[in-house]
């Protein structure tokens, strides 16, 4: 008989250290393994989070990859499991499987301008890559964060964005679809910010994350600007039950989104974006 292999389907208990409410329906949790130890991951990867007795959801990791002592997840409660996650408090436990999936190839952008294009909660999966880029700031040309949110009240990581905006080595441009209150900033879709440029298209790598429609148009805007489609990366969402290519649910054409993605090079999937109900 063969020795049993480690089972990727069994979660490891983590304890919630902190919970911060980011938006009315979005929250960030800091987790530590109950058995101690560290958690290493690459920016763009995700975990399957298990709420005891309720179920599991894939959630991207949104913390700093350089800090292995704590696992950070930003979640928007939109369904049964995420709502159950939302109900957990510091001290509670949840199960973690992962990290799974491909990552934002930050190192491949060394020597380039690096343009992050985020929409809505799509900023969360990009944040680890932003941290990693800032930790290697001297390796890039310009580093630009273009972020589109629904309204000023829906801007994720607002304080952090303000802090980043204060840095002279990072350009942060935020736009909202609908201005409310005393918002004096940009109004319009995030593709408008792409069209405004501010980067050298022939020497630019871009990481794009948001709703699929937004990514499609953002990638097209980058392409129109002259950015090579082979230097544009997107993060795709599909139904995931296992996270590791065993359950078949997340198939997108020839890809298993969970292990061939979620981060894909745009030129390799641009055709798939055009196929309805794939």
């Amino acid at each position: 008989m063969n020795a049993p292999l480690p089972d990727p389907m069994v979660p490891v208990p983590f304890r919630i250290e902190k919970v911060r409410r980011d938006l009315s329906d979005t929250f960030t949790m800091e987790l530590v393994p109950e058995a101690g130890g560290e958690f290493a991951f690459q920016p763009g990867q995700f975990n399957m989070l298990y709420v005891f007795g309720v179920g599991e959801v894939p959630i991207s990791i949104s913390g700093d990859p350089a800090d292995r002592s704590v696992l950070v997840h930003t979640t928007r409660s939109v369904g049964q499991v995420t709502e159950a996650l939302d109900a957990l408090k510091p001290g509670d436990s949840l199960g973690v499987r992962g990290p799974f999936g491909t990552s934002w190839p930050v190192e491949s952008a060394f020597g380039h301008d690096l343009v992050f294009v985020a929409g809505g909660v799509g900023l969360a999966p990009l944040r680890p890559a932003i941290y990693q880029a800032m930790a290697n700031r001297e390796r890039f040309g310009r580093v630009i964060v273009l972020y589109g949110a629904r309204t000023p009240e829906d801007i994720l990581y607002k304080k952090e964005l303000e802090r980043w905006r204060g840095r002279f080595d990072l350009d942060v441009l935020v736009t909202v679809d609908r201005a409310t209150g005393r918002w004096g900033g940009n109004v319009g879709v995030v593709t408008n910010l792409v069209a405004r440029g501010g980067f050298d298209p022939l020497n630019t790598t871009s990481f794009v994350c948001g709703p699929e429609v937004m990514m499609r148009y953002a990638a097209q805007a980058l392409e129109k600007k002259g950015v090579d489609t082979g230097r544009i990366w997107v993060s795709v969402e599909r139904n995931m039950k296992c996270g590791c290519g065993l359950c078949g649910h997340c198939q997108w054409g020839p890809h298993f989104t969970c292990k061939d993605g979620p981060v894909f090079r745009y030129d390799r999937v641009a055709d798939l974006f055009q196929i309805r109900e794939l």
Partner: peptide, 13 residues
């Protein structure tokens, strides 16, 4: 896939 039991501060697989 697994069974888990609730414990004081969480659960054990």
């Amino acid at each position: 896939l697994f069974a888990a039991r609730r414990q004081d501060s969480g659960f054990a697989v």
